[in-house]
């Protein structure tokens, strides 16, 4: 028996069973407002009148206090790396080359981190408390992809005491 034939006659040990769901995502009012602002290069948050936390993106209702949130306002596009992860594993449909950094970025004056990429530095140089700023695409759209990534600003790191309540 030739080698090709013997390979063909190997017993089946695996089957491919891909699943896919195509659906329309409806953003709702709060996220629609947020995305429209992103399309203008702005990041929106809003404040809970009861606990005073500022959420990014803006919410309709405070998830802690269950009271309606205040009017959305623009927040800075700079902040700190709260926590991060260096992605070293390749997976299906991955857009970026490994290794890359996925981080929780706590924007200045806000209380809820945003998950995004940190680039323009070596992955081994990313630190908790590192100051970062958004790098926007030239063509903006109502998607968080309008922010390409966050990059280090070179400012001194934030001290742990200033952000440990968010960890």
């Amino acid at each position: 028996m030739s080698e090709a034939q013997s390979t063909e006659k190997k017993p089946v040990t695996y089957i491919n069973t891909p699943v896919a769901v195509k659906y329309d995502y409806t953003a709702g009012k709060a996220t629609s407002d947020f995305m429209r602002a992103v399309a203008q290069g702005k990041i929106l948050g809003n404040r809970c009148p009861q606990c005073n936390r500022v959420y990014v993106p803006n919410f309709l209702v405070c998830v802690q206090c269950a009271v309606p949130m205040g009017e959305p306002f623009e927040v800075p596009d700079s902040g700190i790396v709260l926590t991060f992860c260096i992605v070293n594993i390749k997976f299906y449909d991955q857009v970026l080359e490994v290794p890359y950094v996925s981080a929780y970025v706590l924007l200045d004056g806000t209380d809820l981190p945003l998950m995004h990429l940190v680039q323009e530095c070596n992955v081994n140089d990313v630190r908790m408390g590192m100051r970062v700023k958004a790098v926007w695409k030239e063509e903006l759209s109502p998607s968080l992809e309008s922010i390409r990534y966050f990059k280090p600003t070179g400012e001194p790191d934030a001290a742990l005491e200033t952000f440990k309540e968010y960890l």
Binding site: V19, Y23, D24, G28, Y92, S143
Partner: peptide, 12 residues
């Protein structure tokens, strides 16, 4: 409100 088409896919 904004809508977008999403695809959730797993290559099991």
């Amino acid at each position: 409100v904004l809508r977008a088409e999403h695809v959730l896919e797993f290559p099991y």
